[in-house]
Protein backbone atom coordinates (compact mmCIF):
# COMPACT_ATOMS: atom_id res chain seq x y z
CA UNK A 1 0.00 0.00 0.00
CA UNK A 2 2.85 2.33 0.77
CA UNK A 3 4.07 2.07 -2.79
CA UNK A 4 0.72 3.21 -4.13
CA UNK A 5 0.47 5.96 -1.54
CA UNK A 6 3.84 7.36 -2.55
CA UNK A 7 2.96 7.14 -6.20
CA UNK A 8 -0.26 9.06 -5.69
CA UNK A 9 1.44 11.70 -3.57
CA UNK A 10 4.18 12.22 -6.11
CA UNK A 11 1.63 12.55 -8.90
CA UNK A 12 -0.22 15.05 -6.80
CA UNK A 13 2.68 17.46 -6.84
CA UNK A 14 1.73 18.37 -10.41
CA UNK A 15 -1.99 18.53 -9.84
CA UNK A 16 -1.60 20.61 -6.70
CA UNK A 17 0.31 23.02 -8.82
CA UNK A 18 -2.56 23.15 -11.31
CA UNK A 19 -4.98 23.25 -8.42
CA UNK A 20 -3.39 26.42 -7.11
CA UNK A 21 -4.60 28.15 -10.23
CA UNK A 22 -8.13 26.76 -9.90
CA UNK A 23 -8.27 26.31 -6.11
CA UNK A 24 -10.75 23.48 -6.62
CA UNK A 25 -10.83 20.06 -8.30
CA UNK A 26 -13.74 18.16 -9.75
CA UNK A 27 -13.92 14.41 -9.28
CA UNK A 28 -16.48 11.80 -10.24
CA UNK A 29 -17.92 9.73 -7.40
CA UNK A 30 -19.16 6.21 -8.19
CA UNK A 31 -21.65 4.57 -5.85
CA UNK A 32 -22.15 0.81 -5.56
CA UNK A 33 -24.58 -1.50 -3.74
CA UNK A 34 -25.98 0.05 -0.55
CA UNK A 35 -24.34 3.41 -1.36
CA UNK A 36 -26.43 3.42 -4.53
CA UNK A 37 -29.61 2.75 -2.55
CA UNK A 38 -29.10 5.46 0.03
CA UNK A 39 -28.04 8.15 -2.44
CA UNK A 40 -30.35 7.10 -5.25
CA UNK A 41 -27.44 7.70 -7.64
CA UNK A 42 -24.94 5.57 -9.53
CA UNK A 43 -22.48 8.45 -9.87
CA UNK A 44 -22.18 12.20 -9.36
CA UNK A 45 -19.65 14.98 -9.87
CA UNK A 46 -18.11 16.45 -6.73
CA UNK A 47 -16.17 19.70 -6.49
CA UNK A 48 -13.73 19.96 -3.58
CA UNK A 49 -10.90 22.32 -2.67
CA UNK A 50 -7.62 21.31 -4.28
CA UNK A 51 -5.49 19.31 -1.92
CA UNK A 52 -8.56 17.58 -0.47
CA UNK A 53 -8.15 13.98 0.67
CA UNK A 54 -10.51 11.09 0.02
CA UNK A 55 -11.62 11.51 3.63
CA UNK A 56 -12.56 15.15 2.94
CA UNK A 57 -14.60 13.97 -0.03
CA UNK A 58 -16.38 11.41 2.16
CA UNK A 59 -17.29 14.09 4.71
CA UNK A 60 -18.63 16.22 1.92
CA UNK A 61 -20.72 13.30 0.63
CA UNK A 62 -22.02 12.44 4.09
CA UNK A 63 -23.20 15.98 4.62
CA UNK A 64 -25.11 15.71 1.33
CA UNK A 65 -26.37 12.18 2.11
CA UNK A 66 -26.43 11.65 5.89
CA UNK A 67 -27.53 8.02 5.49
CA UNK A 68 -24.14 7.22 3.92
CA UNK A 69 -22.82 7.31 7.51
CA UNK A 70 -24.30 3.87 8.15
CA UNK A 71 -21.80 2.26 5.76
CA UNK A 72 -18.82 4.54 6.41
CA UNK A 73 -17.07 1.87 8.50
CA UNK A 74 -17.68 -0.94 6.07
CA UNK A 75 -16.64 -0.25 2.52
CA UNK A 76 -13.80 -0.38 0.05
CA UNK A 77 -12.62 3.01 -1.18
CA UNK A 78 -10.99 3.04 -4.61
CA UNK A 79 -9.50 5.87 -6.62
CA UNK A 80 -9.24 5.21 -10.36
CA UNK A 81 -9.92 1.52 -9.71
CA UNK A 82 -7.21 1.12 -7.08
CA UNK A 83 -7.60 0.79 -3.33
CA UNK A 84 -6.57 3.90 -1.42
CA UNK A 85 -6.42 4.99 2.18
CA UNK A 86 -8.58 7.91 3.28
CA UNK A 87 -5.56 10.23 3.42
CA UNK A 88 -4.92 10.04 -0.34
CA UNK A 89 -5.24 13.40 -2.08
CA UNK A 90 -7.67 13.53 -5.01
CA UNK A 91 -6.87 15.15 -8.32
CA UNK A 92 -8.97 16.76 -11.02
CA UNK A 93 -10.78 14.10 -13.08
CA UNK A 94 -10.26 11.28 -10.54
CA UNK A 95 -12.91 8.60 -10.10
CA UNK A 96 -13.64 7.83 -6.46
CA UNK A 97 -15.57 4.58 -5.96
CA UNK A 98 -17.51 3.79 -2.79
CA UNK A 99 -17.98 0.04 -2.56
CA UNK A 100 -19.85 -1.46 0.39
CA UNK A 101 -19.95 -5.27 0.45
CA UNK A 102 -22.96 -7.13 -0.92
CA UNK A 103 -23.91 -10.20 1.06
CA UNK A 104 -26.86 -11.61 -0.87
CA UNK A 105 -26.78 -14.70 -3.01
Amino acid sequence: MDAIGTENTSKNVDSTHEGNENTSVEIKVLFFARARDVTGLTDMPLVVASGSTAENCLYELMSKFPSLKEISNCMVLALNEEYISESTIVKNGDELAIIPPISGG
Binding site: R34, E70, I71, C74, V76, P100, P101, G104, G105
Partner: peptide, 18 residues
Protein backbone atom coordinates in the same frame (compact mmCIF):
# COMPACT_ATOMS: atom_id res chain seq x y z
CA UNK B 1 -8.74 -7.37 5.84
CA UNK B 2 -11.23 -5.42 3.69
CA UNK B 3 -14.15 -5.33 6.10
CA UNK B 4 -12.86 -5.55 9.70
CA UNK B 5 -16.13 -4.04 10.94
CA UNK B 6 -19.35 -5.75 9.88
CA UNK B 7 -21.97 -3.60 8.15
CA UNK B 8 -24.79 -2.34 10.39
CA UNK B 9 -27.92 -4.49 10.21
CA UNK B 10 -29.78 -1.68 8.43
CA UNK B 11 -27.34 -1.98 5.55
CA UNK B 12 -27.65 -5.78 5.27
CA UNK B 13 -30.07 -6.83 2.65
CA UNK B 14 -31.17 -10.21 1.47
CA UNK B 15 -32.67 -11.27 -1.82
CA UNK B 16 -35.81 -12.26 0.08
CA UNK B 17 -36.30 -8.62 1.12
CA UNK B 18 -34.70 -6.56 -1.63
Amino acid sequence: CLFPVPPPTTACQRCSDS
